[in-house]
Every structure is written in C-alpha cells, then in structure tokens.
C-alpha cells in the first residue's frame, strides 16, 4: 500500500511522523490554551462562577483606559533596557577583560560570578531583602557609613524597579558570561593570529573580528534577556514589591497575573495576554529579519 505512493509523498509522510510528537505537545500545551485564552478574552468570568458572560470587545476597549497597564508596558521596556546593560554589555566587557588575566585567576572569577545562577530566584529575592533593608541591611549600613540618607529601595517609586533589576542582573550575569566565554572559546585561534599578523590591535580586533564572530551567542543572549525582562522578573516582583509602590515595579506579566489570579478578572486578563501576544508576534518577525541581517552564522 505504502510502496505505491510516490517517493515525495512517502518522504513527507515520514517527516510528518517524526514531527508529530512535538506537534502534539505544542497543540495541547501551547495552541489549545492560546485559542482558549482568545475565547476567554471576549468574556467576563471570575474563574469559579459557572456562567461566563459574553462581553464582545469590552475587555479590549477597557485596556485603553487602564493607567496601570500603560505603566506595566512602559516598565517592561525599562526592564529590558536595564537588563541589556547589566547582563549583556557588562558580561561582554568582563569577558573581554578576562582574556587578559592569568588562567587561574580567570577560573576563580568564573566560579565566583557563576555561583548566583544556581540559587533559586525566590530564595535570592528573600536574601536581597536583607541587603536592601535601609535599617540595618547591608546596603543601608554602607550608605550610613558613607553619611548618605538611606534609600528605601523597595518602597520608593524611584528605586523599586532598579532593585528588581539588580536582583535579576546579579543572578543572570554569570550565566551569560559563561555563554560568552564558551562562544569565545569556539573562535579559532588561527583566525585571531591571522588578524594579528595583519596588524589588528586589541580594540579593532574585538570590534571587527571577535564581536561579529560572537554575534550568534550575543543574539541568543539578547533574546533570552528580553524574555527575562517580561517573565523572569515576576518572581522578585511577586515576593518583594507586589508591583508597587503605586505600580512602580510592575511589568506586563505581573499585571496579567494580578488581573487573573488576584482580582479574578479572567476575561480582561486574557484580553491583555492576547494583546501582548500580538505585540510579541510583531517583535518576533522583526527579530527574524534582524537575525538574517546582523548575525553571521557562517562557518569559522
């Protein structure tokens, strides 16, 4: 029976068979919930009531007049900008610096900087509470010794977001650095030597040779950082600030969670989730375009 089919059809059947397990899980755990969320976004429902009230586009219209949502979107962008600085640019500089130190020192740095990665984020958040506490906390005490007025890190709208960034940055820094070091190790020594022979010096070598060769790694880190700015920051926000004070440290995922699981406005929360999905969809297309343009995956 099968042998009667053309080779082409047989091959595509084979292919389908191979991707079907993955497709199945995607369908059950990604696409079905996505469709369900889209349906919920047109309803008013509190999750336990047996009836769901159809409300049309009301949930989407309400988004336009919710100041907390605007703040959450703005903060998500702010988180991304801060994290790009702390866990992409800084690790690149550190990695560059580490190529100039002795091997043994480098190993020590690597272990020290990597260790926060293995601490759970919830525990890290509680730990940082002791650091941030302006009364007797580590930073508070240093501030006092310097004769400065204590900063209410977690309770002031000016600093709450930065405090969350510091925690996530502290935790993710070492991991990204390790990825960069691995990427660096993958660059062939011959290429570097050839460039040196041709007269490339330290800075030029980095700018024109090493960074472009590292671009796939950097690009990967960039994508994971953007997802951190939306999802990963949730834990410290939840544990430490509750999105406050006055929404100063909230972000889009926290807002979606708060609407659904704190205030039980499941329909409205779904509408936000769908809107955010669309925003990220556009970003994803842009990212694919960018990766074609900028990232060089050519063989080394």
């Amino acid at each position: 029976m099968i042998s009667k089919l053309s080779l082409k059809t047989r091959n595509s059947l084979k292919g389908l068979l191979l991707v079907s397990p993955a497709l199945f899980f995607f369908a059950v755990f990604v696409y079905r919930p996505l469709i369900h969320t889209a349906i919920l976004s047109f309803h008013d429902w509190n999750m336990v009531s047996p009836t769901r009230l159809f409300v049309g586009w009301d949930n989407y219209l309400e988004m336009l007049e919710n100041p907390a949502l605007g703040k959450a979107l703005q903060n998500s962008a702010l988180y991304a900008v801060w994290l790009i600085g702390i866990i992409i640019l800084l690790p690149i500089l550190t990695t560059a610096g580490m190529t100039y130190v002795h091997n043994r020192v480098r190993k020590m740095f690597r272990v020290t900087l990597f260790s926060p990665t293995v601490v759970s984020l919830g525990i890290a958040s509680v730990m940082w509470l002791w650091v941030f506490n302006p009364i007797g906390g580590l930073l508070g005490t240093i501030w006092e010794e310097l004769g400065l007025a204590p900063l209410n890190w977690l309770s002031s709208p000016k600093t709450a977001l930065v405090a969350i960034v510091i925690i996530v940055g502290w935790k993710a820094f070492g991991y990204n650095m390790l990825l960069l070091l691995a990427g660096l190790g993958g660059i062939s020594g011959e290429v570097i030597d050839a460039c040196k022979v041709d007269g490339a010096d330290g800075f030029g070598l980095w700018l024109y040779v090493i960074l472009p060769l590292l671009s796939p790694t950097i690009f990967f880190i960039l994508i994971s950082t953007l997802s951190m700015a939306t999802e990963y920051v949730f834990t410290p926000i939840h544990v430490l600030t509750g999105g406050g004070p006055v929404n100063a440290s909230t972000n889009i995922v926290f807002e979606i969670w708060r609407q659904a699981f704190r205030w039980f406005r499941v329909g409205y929360s779904s509408a936000i989730a769908i809107a955010v999905f669309l925003i990220f969809f556009v970003l994803m297309i842009f990212q694919m375009w960018l990766s074609e343009k900028v990232v060089s995956y050519d063989e080394r």
């Binding site: 002791w130 506490n133 302006p134 009364i135 007797g136 906390g137 309770s155 002031s156 430490l240 600030t241």
Partner: peptide, 12 residues
C-alpha cells in the same frame, strides 16, 4: 517612621 516593607520593619 521608615517607609519600608513590613518584613523590613519586622527585621528592624
């Protein structure tokens, strides 16, 4: 009066 979270006041 410190403007801090309740856990911080507790510790203090």
């Amino acid at each position: 009066l410190p403007v801090v979270t309740d856990t911080e006041q507790e510790q203090a």
